[in-house]
Every structure is written in C-alpha cells, then in structure tokens.
C-alpha cells in the first residue's frame, strides 16, 4: 500500500513536487491564455469568412507573442485624477482569483513517485466547490475598483454594470452547483471526478442536464463574455471598466478574461463532464481534461461569433426571473429524487 505524499513523510519531495505542479499548471494555463486569443480571432474570422491574423508567422501563429511584446513596450498611462492605489491593484485583483481557482481542478489520476502517491491536482480541498465560489466572489473587486478608480464616467458605468451582473449571476451559479453536490455528497472535486469515472453515462451532465446548461449560461455572464459582455459594450461604453488602462495593465485584464474562460470551462468539465476520467483511458487524463476544456472554450467563442449582445435590463431579467427560479426548481427536484431514492 503506497502512502499519499505529504509534508510529514517526505518534506523535500513534497515541496519539490508541489513547485513542479504549480509551475506546470501555471505555464500551461498561461500558454492556453496566449493562444486562446489567437484561436478566438482565427475562429471568429473564419466564421465571418475572413482569415483572421495571417502576417506574423505561419497563419499568424506568432501573433500572441507579438501582441504581448507590443503591450509590454507601450507607455503605461495613469490618469492624473485616478485613485492610484486601487488603480494599480485592480488588474491584479482580477487576474489572481482567476488563476488560483485552477488549483483545485484535478487533471489526472494519482501517479507514483519514489514510492509515494502524488495526486495530479495542486491541492484537494474538501471544500473545493465552496473555494471556487469564494474566488468567484473575489473576482468582482477587480472590476469594481478598475471602474471606480479610473475616475471616468464610462469606466464607472462599466464597473457598476459588471458588478451588478456578477453578483446576480453568482447567485444562480451557486444554486446550480448545489444540485451537483447533492448527488455527489461531497465538496471535493477529486471525489466528484471519481464518482463520475465509471463510464460516460455516469457523467453528471446526464443526471443534471438543466444544471449544466444553467452553469454554462451563468458562467458566461460571470466572466462577462458575449452575449453578456455588457461591462465592455463598446458601442455605448468605449471599453467599459478598462477604458483608462494601457500597456501591461490592460494586458492583465485581457489575460484575466481568458483565464476566467479557462476556469469556467475546467470547472464545467470537472463537475459535469467527468473531468479527467473518460472517454479516453485513465493514463491520458490530462488529454481528456484539456479536450473538454477546449471544446467548451470553442463553444464560448462560437457563441461570441453568433449571438448579439443582450440589453442590460434583459440581462437582469434573465438572471433574476428565469435563471434563479429554474435553478431553484432544479434544486427542489434533485432534492426530491435524492430523498425518494434512499
């Protein structure tokens, strides 16, 4: 019986493995963030019978690097009337919660290193799902602060809209997820994946189809993407909360948007689509997870190319009068079924 590697049985190896996992997960996430921008421009381009970026590298493959370098060397402007501290903090406060949420997403089965079991997950919190909700709640600050501290009316309007939107949709997302862990009877993402690992039929998407749909919609709204990209509705608000930002700070907002997209896709894949388990064999766990994440991200990009932006009042009505009642009904039905099954 191999032991789980921990701080108490082999401290140096534990710290080493932890750092390695952190570096790999961070590197892969940032890589996906960079190339998600390229994929998004390419996919939307082809959907609109354009070519998208073509100039830098083969089919524009070097475009993310060129963009990154360009933003890095641009002048960093801080408006004189801005509140300095919140203005500087806001881009970080939006990116960091997005990145640290990925820590609880399991990406493969346990592997054995030097006689110890190492889980392929940065940390398995037994409150994993709550941790995700908590970090989603912290993400609001970045947007609110960016909007307010810029001292510009467009930024402020964008910030207020975004936070109202995020608070309302967070509620619906939370209620939706409760239905999942009523079935799983655990909050740990690792165990939720294990419960779905039997076959494809065991995925929670088949037991909770409504919850899956609701989670994707509320997820889209929470990360402020089309059709819910009210905060940065450029036809009315210039660029929303990040209007006054430039250079790397602007790039951080951009990265946060794509990091959030990865997070929502990874959580949806883990909670509803069996995470790293299936359809390919266990040893290809990472491929399974990444495949599902990419599929969901492609779906998000596809939506962006297809749907127009909804009006703000429609957005709020959809959230409070349709999604939350549906989520509550789903919760009640799930509860009833769980009780009757016992």
């Amino acid at each position: 019986m191999t032991e789980m590697l921990s701080m108490s049985n082999n401290a140096p190896l534990f710290v080493g493995m932890m750092l390695l996992k952190l570096a790999v997960v961070f590197g892969v996430t940032m890589g996906i963030v960079a190339y998600a921008t390229w994929v998004e421009r390419k996919v939307i381009g082809h959907m609109q019978t354009r070519l998208g970026p073509m100039r830098t590298g083969w089919h524009g493959l070097l475009q993310p690097i060129a963009d990154g370098l360009k933003l890095f060397f641009k002048e960093d402007i801080i408006p004189t009337q801005a509140s300095k501290v919140p203005f500087l903090l806001a881009p970080m406060m939006i990116l960091i919660p997005a990145l640290i949420t990925i820590a609880v997403v399991p990406f493969g089965p346990d592997v054995t290193v030097k006689g110890f079991l190492v889980p392929l997950q940065i940390t398995d919190l037994n409150i994993g799902v709550l941790y995700i909700l908590a970090m989603a709640g912290l993400g609001v600050y970045g947007i609110v602060l960016a909007g307010w501290s810029s001292n510009s009316k467009y930024a402020l309007l964008g910030g207020v809209r975004a936070s109202a939107q995020m608070i309302s949709y967070e509620l619906a997302a939370g209620i939706t997820i409760i239905a999942v862990f009523m079935l799983s009877e655990t909050l740990s993402l690792r165990e939720i994946v294990a419960l779905q690992s039997g076959s494809v039929i065991d995925w929670y998407v088949f037991k909770q189809p409504l919850a899956f749909g609701l989670f994707l919609i509320t997820g889209l709204a929470e990360i402020n993407r089309t059709p819910f990209d009210m905060p940065e509705a450029e036809s009315e608000l210039v660029s929303g909360f990040c209007t006054e930002y430039s250079s790397m700070k602007y790039a951080l907002f951009f990265m946060a948007e794509y990091a959030n997209m990865i997070v929502i896709a990874a959580i949806a894949a883990t909670l509803f689509l069996g995470g790293w388990s299936g359809p390919l064999p266990e040893s290809l766990g990472v491929v399974n997870l990444l495949g599902k994440v990419f599929a969901i991200m492609f779906f998000f990009i596809w939506l962006r190319a297809t749907l127009p932006r909804v009006r703000y009042d429609q957005l709020m009505q959809l959230g409070w009068k349709v999604l939350i009642p549906l989520a509550l009904a789903n919760l009640a039905v799930t509860g009833l079924v769980v009780v009757l099954q016992q």
């Binding site: 919190l125 037994n126 409150i127 709550l130 908590a134 709640g137 912290l138 609001v140 936070s163 608070i167």
Partner: peptide
C-alpha cells in the same frame, strides 16, 4: 475549519464588502 474559511470569504469578503464598497 475550512468550511468557516470559505463562508468567511464568500459572505464577508465576497458579498458584504462589495455592497459597502458600492
């Protein structure tokens, strides 16, 4: 007490302080 920690962040940091900030 991880549950308390999560609730602390969700309720106080995530909800109440956002309203105060507003």
């Amino acid at each position: 007490a991880p549950f308390m920690a999560a609730i602390q962040v969700i309720v106080y940091a995530g909800a109440i302080m956002v309203l105060i900030l507003f």
